[in-house]
């Protein structure tokens, strides 16, 4: 048994659907690690682990400096860290897909992280270049929506659907649809309300998939 087997079992045997949103990237990563010919961590995977632990430590330290740093400086550093982390995750997933395991989940995770990073780069570039706030909705929304959709696609692949949970998945998803209905009723159908509605509809879709699937 691989030394990582207990970790895989711990995550994959949980039955709490809400936490499953975070599980399939871990499952994909565990599959990638388990599928290496050496039977364990390769040097590249070790290096990636160290790198991401360092990123986590930086984020923790940055969070602690919130009371010290100027708000603009803190915001800038946290935004750069967010973009860099998302881009690094995309590269790591692409590398793992290419050289470790042909697990489709890794590819979907890479696309999700890459889209998130691109959307944030566009957002900050827009503000920096044009000197004005980003008017909602913009192209950035597509990347954020795409992130959730890649997540949903990965979830549909990773976890099997449980028969008989259709009613529960609809019940869980329905509250997310109440917001767009209220927004459109109040403000009418505009590009902003349409994108907001789409945002909540995709979240409802994701919750519905999570509820009707099993992590085991």
């Amino acid at each position: 048994m691989s030394k990582h087997e207990p970790l895989r079992s711990q995550f994959l045997d949980q039955n709490w659907p809400i936490f499953c949103i975070n599980l399939w990237p871990l499952k994909a990563s565990a599959n990638a690690i388990g599928s290496t010919e050496s039977g364990g961590f390769s040097i590249s995977v070790r290096a990636m682990s160290v790198f991401f632990w360092a990123l986590l430590a930086f984020s923790f330290i940055l969070a602690l400096t919130i009371a010290i740093l100027h708000s603009g400086t803190f915001l800038a550093w946290s935004n750069y860290a967010q973009i860099f982390t998302a881009a690094a995750c995309a590269v790591a997933c692409a590398y793992a897909f290419r050289f470790q395991s042909k697990d489709l989940l890794l590819l979907l995770a890479g696309f999700a992280f890459g889209g998130w990073a691109l959307s944030n780069v566009f957002w900050y570039s827009y503000v920096a270049i044009l000197g004005q706030s980003l008017m909602y909705p913009t192209i950035s929304e597509s990347g954020f929506l795409g992130f959730m959709l890649f997540l949903a696609a990965g979830y549909q692949i990773a976890f099997p659907r449980i028969e008989g949970r259709g009613f529960f998945s609809f019940t869980a998803a329905f509250p997310f649809l109440a917001v767009p209905i209220a927004v459109v009723h109040q403000m009418g159908l505009t590009p902003a309300t349409a994108v907001t509605s789409l945002n909540f509809a995709i979240q409802a879709y994701l919750v519905g998939i999570c509820v009707r699937s099993s992590p085991s």
Partner: peptide, 19 residues
């Protein structure tokens, strides 16, 4: 999963184009 995947790829393309 295909609609979600296609929209995701499309969103990456339009973001690069907009950038």
């Amino acid at each position: 999963a295909l609609p979600a995947l296609l929209f995701g790829l499309y969103s990456i393309a339009i973001t690069i184009h907009a950038l």
